[in-house]
C-alpha cells in the first residue's frame, strides 16, 4: 500500500490543493497500485512509512496555527526528501521550507531551512502576484519522456516573493515576469530530487499530469510497472486552459 501523507488538510487548503492527493491516488490506481490518503494534523505521528508527502497553502491566520508543529517535522522531512521520495509543497508550505520569511512589517519568521531560499513580503498588499501562469518546464531538471506538453499551467495568488540561491533549481520559467517565485526573475517553484515546491495553487497535478508522472516515475519503475498511461481527459483540459491563457 502506497501511503500518502496530507499535512494539515484542515488548515492548509487554500484553494483546491486537496485535489493533488486524490490525483496521486487515482494515478497510481491506473497502474494497479493501491494507495491510501492519511490526514496528518497537529500532533499526529508522521513516520518513514509514508511514500508521498503533500502540504498546501493556507490563509495567514491558519498558517500561524500549524507553524510550531510544522517546525517539529524537520528531521523527518529532510530524510524523506534526501532519500528521493516524492513530495509536493504548495505556496505557504513551500515558503516554510526555506531559511526564513520576512513579513511586511520586517518580522523574521524562521523556516525549516531545508532549502537555501528566502521569502520576503513587500509592505503593500496591493501588489500580490496573482493570475494564471504558464510555466515552461526547465528541461534540465524535468525531461518528460513521453508525448506531453513541456508547459505546465496553474493559478497563483501570493504576496511573498521567494528568492532561490543560485544552486537551487526551479521547476521552470514563467511566461510572465510578475508571476512565479517573485517579480524579478522568471523562475517558478523549486525542484530537488523528487520534491516539488510551487506557487501554483489548486489541483496542480490534475492540471499537469506530467508532474505526477515525474514524481511517481521512480516508484513505478521499482514496482516494474510500465510507465505508460493514457492522459486523454487531462490532456484535453490542459490544452483548453493553455489556449485560453494564450489568447
Amino acid at each position: 500500500m502506497f501511503k500518502i501523507a496530507h499535512l494539515y488538510p484542515k488548515e492548509l487548503n487554500l484553494y483546491g490543493d486537496t485535489g493533488n492527493v486524490y490525483y496521486v491516488k487515482y494515478f497510481l490506481n491506473k497502474f494497479g497500485i493501491k494507495s491510501g490518503i492519511y490526514e496528518i494534523g497537529i500532533g499526529d505521528v508522521l513516520d518513514d512509512t509514508y511514500d508521498f508527502i503533500f502540504a498546501g497553502g493556507g490563509p495567514d491566520s491558519l498558517q500561524n496555527k500549524i507553524y510550531q508543529d510544522f517546525l517539529t517535522r524537520k528531521s523527518f522531512l529532510i530524510k524523506h526528501i534526501h532519500r528521493g521520495k516524492p513530495s509536493l509543497f504548495i505556496c505557504g508550505s513551500y515558503q516554510l521550507m526555506g531559511k526564513y520569511y520576512l513579513t511586511a512589517d520586517k518580522k523574521k519568521i524562521k523556516g525549516l531551512n531545508i532549502f537555501d531560499i528566502v521569502t520576503k513580503s513587500p509592505p503593500d498588499q496591493k501588489h500580490r502576484l496573482v493570475g494564471n501562469s504558464i510555466i515552461t518546464l526547465n528541461e534540465s531538471v524535468i525531461k518528460p519522456n513521453y508525448n506531453f506538453d513541456t508547459r505546465i499551467i496553474g493559478f497563483q495568488n501570493h504576496n511573498g516573493r521567494t528568492y532561490l540561491n543560485s544552486k537551487v533549481k526551479n521547476i521552470g520559467k514563467s511566461k510572465n515576469l510578475y508571476l512565479g517565485n517573485n517579480d524579478v526573475d522568471y523562475g517558478e517553484g523549486l525542484l530537488f530530487k523528487k520534491t516539488l515546491c510551487s506557487y501554483l495553487h489548486g489541483p496542480l497535478l490534475v492540471k499537469n499530469p506530467q508532474l505526477a508522472y515525474y514524481l511517481l516515475y521512480d516508484y513505478l519503475k521499482n514496482k516494474k510497472k510500465v510507465p505508460m498511461y493514457n492522459f486523454f481527459a487531462e490532456y484535453i483540459s490542459h490544452k483548453n486552459i493553455l489556449l485560453k491563457n494564450e489568447s
Binding site: 484553494y15 483546491g16 489548486g202 489541483p203
Partner: peptide
C-alpha cells in the same frame, strides 16, 4: 472567475 480550482473544495 477564470480559475475553477474551487471544484476541489
Amino acid at each position: 472567475g477564470r480559475d475553477v480550482s474551487w471544484f476541489y473544495d
